[in-house]
């Protein structure tokens, strides 16, 4: 019975230089294979990791449909609610009135609402904003960079950013009262020594 681990057989005279060539090609092949596995493993990790919902909120700059520009890091000290939406998304329409009402309620307390329009057409987006009479900041996610940074999976999603710039969780799906009110109260109540 041949052993599972045999010593390499004697190599004929003329193949004396083969071991070196074999070793190089072996190395190359295994290197390639392991590299490939690493890539797939990384991909797997990516796919299985969910939204970014803790740590510092990824910074971004966004320009509204009116031309105004905001950078997230400039809003340090304020509670920020980031809502990803799209005009073609039915659940977004469900939560739109609630979002606008909550915004108006907490506006004076310095809470900032940023609406990030995810892969949408300008015409339909503006129509959507007008339909729900939305007054808070809304701009398109150019190049889907922001949604990529937050690993956003599908609209609607709402990210909560505390006054110190840290993420305090994400709501996947449409918000319903009193979820958002409660969350904002929580964030407003945070004190930093």
């Amino acid at each position: 019975m041949a052993d599972l681990v045999t010593k390499p057989g004697e190599l004929a005279g003329q193949e004396a230089d083969v071991p070196n060539r074999f070793r190089l090609s072996t190395l190359v092949i295994f290197g390639f294979v392991f590299g490939l596995l690493a890539l797939l493993g990384w991909g797997l990790v990516q796919v299985n990791s969910g939204q970014v919902d803790s740590g510092m909120a990824p910074d971004f700059t966004i320009t509204s449909f009116e031309g105004e520009t905001i950078t997230l890091s400039d809003l340090r000290g304020q509670v920020v609610i980031i809502n990803f939406w799209a005009s073609w998304c039915p659940p977004c329409r469900e939560e739109a009135p609630y979002l606008e009402a909550t915004w108006r309620k907490y506006q004076e307390q310095g809470v900032v609402f940023i609406g990030v329009d995810y892969v949408d057409t300008e015409k339909e987006a503006l129509a959507y904003i007008e339909e729900f009479d939305i007054t808070y900041f809304n701009g398109p996610d150019l190049g889907t960079r922001i949604s990529h940074d937050y690993r956003m999976d599908g609209v609607p999603e709402t990210y909560y950013v505390a006054k110190n710039g840290e993420l305090r969780g994400v709501k996947i799906g449409p918000l319903a009262p009193p979820e958002l009110d409660e969350k904002i109260e929580e964030l407003l109540a945070e004190q930093y020594p």
């Binding site: 045999t6 390499p8 057989g9 190599l11 072996t26 092949i29 295994f30 294979v33 392991f34 596995l37």
Partner: peptide, 18 residues
């Protein structure tokens, strides 16, 4: 996949002389 692929290749290299 990783284990079977790597193991198969390793076995092939080990048994190259056959």
């Amino acid at each position: 996949i990783g284990i079977t692929f790597v193991a198969s290749l390793w076995l092939l290299f080990k048994r190259l002389d056959t």
